[in-house]
Simulated scan of single mutants.
Amino acid sequence: MPKSDIHPTWSKDTPVLWDGKPLCFVGSTKKELQVDIWLANHPFYTKSQVVVDSEGRVERFMKKYGLNSTDN
């Protein structure tokens, strides 16, 4: 026989809040869910994403270990 009263209470209409404003309702065991980033303010979707310049990584590695790019 399974134990009773060991599972959390499931709510079908838990509000997802961003900046105190409800975005949508989802099922959850929490009373409310707070999010910092969502579709409307995510950098990828708002085209404000900063591209990290990774150029020069090999050169920094070679300089760090005192290697020349012509060494084999």
Results as ranks from 00 to 15, higher is better:
Phe44Gly: 01
Val58Phe: 02
Thr14Val: 13
Ser4Thr: 06
Thr29Ser: 11
Phe25Tyr: 11
Val52Ala: 14
Thr70Gly: 05
Asn68Pro: 10
Val52Ile: 15
Ser48Cys: 14
Ser28Ile: 06
Asp36Tyr: 13
Thr14Gln: 00
Leu33Asp: 05
Val52His: 13
Pro22Tyr: 00
Asp36Asn: 13
Val16Met: 03
Thr9Ser: 08
Ser48Gly: 15
Trp10Leu: 13
Leu23Trp: 03
Ser69Arg: 12
Glu59Lys: 15
Ala40Tyr: 08
Met1Leu: 06
Glu59Tyr: 12
Ser28Trp: 04
Val26Met: 01
Thr70Pro: 00
Tyr65Lys: 02
Asp53Cys: 11
Ser28Gln: 06
Asn68Ile: 05
Ser28Phe: 10
Gly66Arg: 04
Leu17Trp: 03
Pro43Phe: 05
Lys47Arg: 07
Lys21Met: 10
Val35Thr: 07
Ser54Arg: 13
Gln34Cys: 08
Lys64Thr: 07
Ile6Thr: 07
Gln34Asp: 08
Lys12Arg: 14
Trp18Lys: 01
Thr70Val: 08
Ala40Arg: 08
Leu33Phe: 11
His7Met: 13
Lys3Ser: 15
Arg60Lys: 12
Ile37Cys: 09
Met62Asn: 12
His42Met: 09
Val16Arg: 01
Leu67Asn: 07
Ser48Val: 11
Asp13Gln: 08
Pro8Gln: 00
Ser11Met: 04
Gly20Asp: 01
Thr29Gly: 09
Cys24Gln: 15
Glu55Phe: 03
Thr9Gln: 12
Tyr65Gly: 00
Glu59Arg: 14
Asp53Arg: 06
Glu59Cys: 09
Asp53Met: 05
Tyr45Glu: 08
His42Tyr: 10
Ile37Ala: 05
Ser48Thr: 14
Lys12Ala: 14
Leu23Ala: 04
Gly27Phe: 00
Val35Leu: 07
Cys24Met: 13
His42Pro: 07
Asp19Glu: 14
Gly56Val: 03
Met1Asn: 10
Val35Tyr: 08
Asp19Val: 02
Ser11Ala: 13
Ser4Ile: 06
Leu17Tyr: 01
Thr29Met: 10
Lys21Ala: 06
Gly56Met: 05
Met62Gln: 11
Lys31Asn: 06
Ser54Trp: 11
Thr9Glu: 11
Asp36Met: 12
Leu33Glu: 11
Trp18Pro: 00
Leu17Asn: 02
Phe61Lys: 09
His7Pro: 01
Val50Ala: 10
Lys21Leu: 09
Leu67Tyr: 13
Met62Trp: 09
Thr14Ser: 02
Gly56Tyr: 06
Gln34Val: 07
Tyr45Phe: 14
Ile6Pro: 01
Asp13Thr: 09
Lys21Glu: 12
Val26Thr: 01
Ser69Pro: 08
Gly20Lys: 03
Pro2Thr: 15
Ser69Gly: 10
Lys63Arg: 07
Val52Asn: 14
Val51Lys: 12
Trp18Ala: 06
Lys63Glu: 11
Val51Trp: 12
Gly56Arg: 05
Arg60Thr: 06
Gln34Leu: 07
Pro8Asn: 00
Val52Asp: 14
Val51Leu: 09
Pro15Gly: 04
Asn68Lys: 15
Ile37Thr: 10
Tyr45Asp: 05
Asp5Glu: 14
Lys30Ala: 08
Ala40Trp: 06
Ser4Trp: 04
Val16Cys: 01
Pro43His: 06
Thr46Tyr: 00
Val26Ile: 06
Thr14Asn: 00
Pro8Trp: 00
Phe61Ser: 10
Pro43Lys: 07
